[in-house]
Design a protein around this nucleic acid. Structure first.
Lengths: 229, 229, 229, 229
DNA sequence: CATGAATGAGATTTCATTCAT
DNA sequence: TATGAATGAAATCTCATTCAT
């Protein structure tokens, strides 16, 4: 068998970029196959390095996993809080903006997979689950609950328990995100699965207006729906 | 608790129950730790048999996994279809009944974990994912979509795309189910997590009536909420 | 390449015998190559089992090592104590008997290698070194020191510090034991290396009588040397 | 402590010292942990250079090991031979001087560890063991044997086989040296371990005079014991 | 049927060595 | 020269599966 002249395996020194490359590779694989079913060598290969290099940056597969979760969470929540302060319009519009924003940041980026892996691995990594809950779940829910609370206070919303309402509001978005990384990624396009955008808009409409047909039917003026779509 | 009157030779009784005991053990562990992280010996131990015995009933861990999924799905959907035919009241009440029923059958039994493991393992077992989609997801959604369709047709519901509406309707329930088997099972009870029952009832109320406060506020008579609780 | 018909790998079930077989194999290899340079698979192979079987009995290479040391030490010291009580003759004869006995039990059996591996690995396994010191070194030395003490008390020996004398007495024996497992095992028979038996007898003679020629030269009657050889 | 007067460009000075610094670091670590358990990076770090630099001076860990052994042996034997020629007093004094000298050069300097590592690694490096035997063991023993031979010839010593006598003479010293680098270095100071100096002096006394009490008890005048201590 | 000791392929991790900078 | 990031062979250890009892 004639050897290729030099396939240039080309050892590259890129100390700066490696951690991020490894985290990206690991995130993708952990989301796709789960933590236990992902082999460390695969992560390295996908990041374009050898097995050994992975261990230069993360001392074990488990630490790599934790780093993936920690890194992916970042400062996203903080941005939401800021936006909340600036907002001028109705609370209904703010809720709508938040859910749409969430979808765009979680549903349409690989970071959304984080939620899937936390779901799968929470019981294997309780400390990490706690971290995720503290850093992501609780602040996110608190943010949304605060908006609901204001809406109720101003009379814009009916009297509901804000924390309970949050559970209802986020359910469909999370469902979409999770589906996208599991069944939705299997090439299963069984029949009439509606696309995410439509689901989100309908959720907003139903959530604010209700599913039931009203006698006079005119829309409550406080909610205007999506600007242009 | 009065003991069963037939003590019957333990060994004899056990033999027939073995497959089910193994499936139960496997389901619990797969839900808790995931497929790859569950050792076959653990499954056997939890079922009270030895490692070798497991292989007497299932030729491999993978086949055991498939059996767990297939078995847990069973005939639940069929029951729903039957119920649908018998139903007399409004479509709103039927939707409410279906979601509550679903919660009771999925959320409050170990079978609910099936959805979690399918989410986690779908991409590792695409044929199984297809099977799950065909046997569970599609029929369930179709059932609910049919109810919505009828409600729209009769004028009880406003004009919505039934398939899209289904996505909105099941989101919160699925979210509750999944949460229960992941973060919720870690002893993380961070702050104001509302209990599932309240979430479900609020979802139904919001879903039908909308979150927005209405000037005259009287409830649409078609939806009556939960009978007594 | 024509396959041998069936080389009969013959899985044997010998739960009882395994631990000892593994310990024997491990002792031999640790003595020969040291702990770090011995591969666990080699140990298994020498014991006639597979890699995996080793880990069925010892959870790690390190634990195997500890077991080897602990097991090889056993009750040898206790036997010595017993013998000491029974002894009738002079203390010089008793010392001679003890050193000869020690040589026969340590120098001529694989257990002697234990001393070599403790020497090599003491600083890598300090707790084990402590154990060895407590269980072997200290009792052995105390035993010999007691004999010396009695000899001094009875006037048979000159006034010496018993603990110091013990160090002098055991030096040559240990040297022989160690040499046997290191340079002596390399096929190095450089020139005039005297055999161990002769060294031991000469040591006894010198130790008791001294190297210096005495004018009148008659032997001190208390020490009779080796019975017949 | 007055500083050396020549500050000299650090880099320059270092360059020439590197090999020795590496050998010193390697010796210390090999003695402490053994050859296999010592990582080359540790050696480099202790010598204050990087991993790569080590390989600039020694092509492999094994060659480094050989260099350590070769270098530590050096010309010590030659010095002994020279001294032997110059000596005027009795052979007993010469033997005493040699053993004390040996203790001071082996026992009280890191070079003594060489004997420990040769013991541990002899069977893994037979050629090196041969080298050590040829260059160190055989000449040392021959030297001592020659002294004994002269003592016997002159009638100062009783009739003994010189080579056998040598084994007896060096045993306790070697034991002390080895102990110091193994159990003795573990912080194990179990009870009445006498200090090395005392052991050596007692050995000399016993070796020459014998342990047994003599009726008239007067010392043989040929041996004078340690000059001042 | 049931068991659990035994197996060995394969996963994780280490570390001597190389080589681009 | 000196560095240390990168490599990959090799070691430790795991666990799905087999099979003698």
């Amino acid at each position: 068998m004639p050897r290729a002249p030099i396939p240039a395996p080309m050892r590259q020194r890129r100390k700066e970029a490696r951690p991020q490359e490894l985290l990206d590779a690991a995130l993708a694989l952990f989301v796709e196959k789960g933590f236990a079913a992902t082999r460390s060598e695969e992560v390295a290969a996908r990041a374009g390095v050898s097995k050994g290099t992975l261990y230069l940056y993360y001392p074990s597969k488990e630490e790599l996993f934790k780093a993936v979760v920690r890194e992916s969470i970042g400062t996203k929540i903080a941005e939401g809080v800021e936006e909340l302060g600036k907002h001028q319009g109705s609370m209904a519009d703010l809720v709508a903006w938040m859910l749409r924003e969430w979808w765009e940041r979680m549903g349409l980026t690989p970071a959304g997979g984080i939620h899937k892996i936390m779901l799968s691995e929470a019981r294997n990594f309780p400390e990490l689950a706690k971290f995720y809950d503290d850093e992501v779940i609780v602040p996110s829910c608190a943010l949304l609950a605060e908006v609901v609370r204001r809406g109720v206070a101003s009379g814009e919303f009916r009297e509901v328990d804000p924390d309970t309402a949050v559970m209802v509001l986020i359910g469909p978005v999370l469902h979409l995100v999770l589906h996208q990384h599991s069944l939705g990624a299997c090439g299963i396009d069984a029949g009439p699965k509606p696309e995410a955008g439509k689901v989100l808009e309908l959720q907003l409409e139903l959530m604010f207006e209700g599913l039931l047909n009203r006698p006079r039917g005119e829309r409550t003026p406080a909610f205007k729906g999506q600007p242009s779509a």
